[in-house]
Design a binder for these strands. Sequence first.
DNA 1: CACTTGACCTGTCCGC
DNA 2: TGCGGACAGGTCAAGT
Length: 288
Amino acid sequence: MPELPEVETVRRGLAEYIIGRTITQATVYDSPKSFPNHTAEVEQFMQGAQVVAVRRRAKVLLIDLSSDYTLVIHLKMTGQLWYRGEEVFGAGHPSDSLIGELPDRSTRVMLEFADSSRLYFNDQRKFGWIKLIATPLVPSLAFMQKVGPEPLEADFTPEQFATRFARRARTNIKAALLDQTVVAGVGNIYADESLWGAKMSPKRLVANVTPAEFALLYDELRAVMNLAIEKGGSTDKNYVNAEGKRGSYMDFARVFRREGQPCPRCGTTIEKIKWAGRGTHLCPVCQK
DNA sequence: CACTTGACCTGTCCGC
DNA sequence: TGCGGACAGGTCAAGT
């Protein structure tokens, strides 16, 4: 589910709600699946620790604690992080919140804070996980070593973007976009959306993409992701932000989940095919 | 090494 | 309405 814009939206919500709060207890409902390294010792590093920062790298959330440990969280397809406290439900649930009693049958982990507010990690499909890692060791995690650059960073250039694809020259552009070691944070939604924006077929061989085309794809990817962050991400089924609210980018999507509808650019019917192992949406006429 | 495929899970939707 | 199969936004471990 969540790609860079969704994880960033969750990060911003969490930063607002949990920084400064002190963890009093962690409850793990399905260890070890959702919290693989949860032990009594790890529990000690959380209890009494204060949240000092909420960071994001690619699709991974990093919650830094005053104990010099970091909660490393990947939401994968259906993970959700809901904060429940005075700020969110003190004045009643927002009308567009997916209201539900928590914990529920999808709750995998619950963190309780000193003021009795709570953070729930819900994950229907159990692909997501939370690990507690010593903060100084986070940069040496295999994932952190391999992952590509953040596409929205100010100093990330179109030339760097193009260069990152060299290693994947013999595959197609969609598979390469989804490769987290090429560029961080791109998933199925924003791959399809940015390819449509760049008028590029997902089937294009990377080796045949020109520097000018890479520059266009770079622009489109950044524009699409920035718009998605502005809209609070994309909610198809599961995704919600820290308040349990949906994102509205899907209202602005041009091809994703719009098969059978006319292409907003040329009017041709949008197709959905299986490509790079994923459901892929495209305009068969104006994406070359 | 680069690349593709299947597996991890649960829930939902579609066609018969 | 019931039931089996396909499919779902992400990533690995395997395989070629």
